[in-house]
Amino acid sequence: MEDETILDLYFARDERAVVETDRKYGGYCFRLANSILHNDQDAEETVSDTWLRAWNAIPPQRPNVFRMFLAKITRNLAFTRWRSQSAEKRGGGEMELVLEELAGCIAASGSVDDRLKVKELARTIRAFLDTLPDREQDIFLRRYFFVEESETIAKRYGMKPAAVLRSLSRTRAKLKTYLQKEGYAV
């Protein structure tokens, strides 16, 4: 079913909207949640929570790109769940690696003054992405939004994994410099 038709169901408060969303994007959102949580049950619950959030958000929202609208909800929910888990349950996992990599772009510990709102930081990040060549942007987002492993990213774009790692390392260095210039403590 086309996205616009599914969205029309949301606007009509027709519960078939959720059924169709699950049919079309259930697998996609599950994979994204599982890349963060590494647990099938937790990922399934996250997907269910995503449908509830979407139901409550639409209307009045009518997403620009429905798939990514859902991906953002799933990612946030999965990350919140991951944070609330005990260290033992989190395990090694890709999420911890992603955060460790991002830690290199910021100050080791932030003062109260450094605790900037996510929205303001988000605007900065969007502007930073715009400075990057298309492919470097893509690689960065596959890693730090979608939490994909470098081998997966490499296959996606027909690259060598080493090239992906170098691209990420280079981009993180650029991000660190960019954040410094924007007045963030790094």
């Binding site: 990514m68 990350f79 932030g110 929205k119 930081l121 990040i125 969007r126 987002l141 939004f145």
Partner: peptide, 22 residues
Amino acid sequence: MTREDLFLAIGEASESRLARSE
């Protein structure tokens, strides 16, 4: 700013840009 803040901020990238990466 924490690494978690940065991770969340990256989550606010525009939907069109995210879709392009696929």
